[in-house]
């Protein structure tokens, strides 16, 4: 079978997006100056985080709400809340 890249995998999912992000990078300078590896951009399973040179772009719309970024950010620099009730990812199968 064909493996799908992460964009294609994300297309398999249903999201009911809120207009407001439930994920907040508290201080983009911390990412810039203290976190050379930008670890969240590596381990986030939905590629929510993308480093754009000066700030962290947060594509919260594709978030699986797994919590890895909250626990895995070495600087506790991500404020993590649940999306508003009924919003966010909607798993249909497993």
């Amino acid at each position: 079978m064909s493996t799908k890249n992460i964009e294609e995998k994300q297309y398999l999912l249903r999201f009911k997006c809120d207009t407001k992000s439930h994920l907040t990078v508290l201080d983009h300078d911390v990412c810039m100056t203290q976190c050379p590896d930008k670890l969240c951009t590596v381990f986030c399973p939905a590629e929510v985080y993308k480093w754009e040179g000066l700030r962290m772009q947060v594509g919260y719309e594709g978030c699986h709400e797994c919590g890895s970024c909250r626990i895995g950010c070495p600087y506790q620099n991500i404020k993590w809340e649940y999306p508003k009730g009924g919003h966010g990812i909607v798993f249909r199968l497993a």
């Binding site: 799908k4 994300q10 398999l12 999912l13 699986h64 199968l93 497993a94």
Partner: peptide, 8 residues
């Protein structure tokens, strides 16, 4: 592939 899921 029908669904892709991540969880802790």
């Amino acid at each position: 592939s029908a669904e892709y899921l991540a969880h802790l």
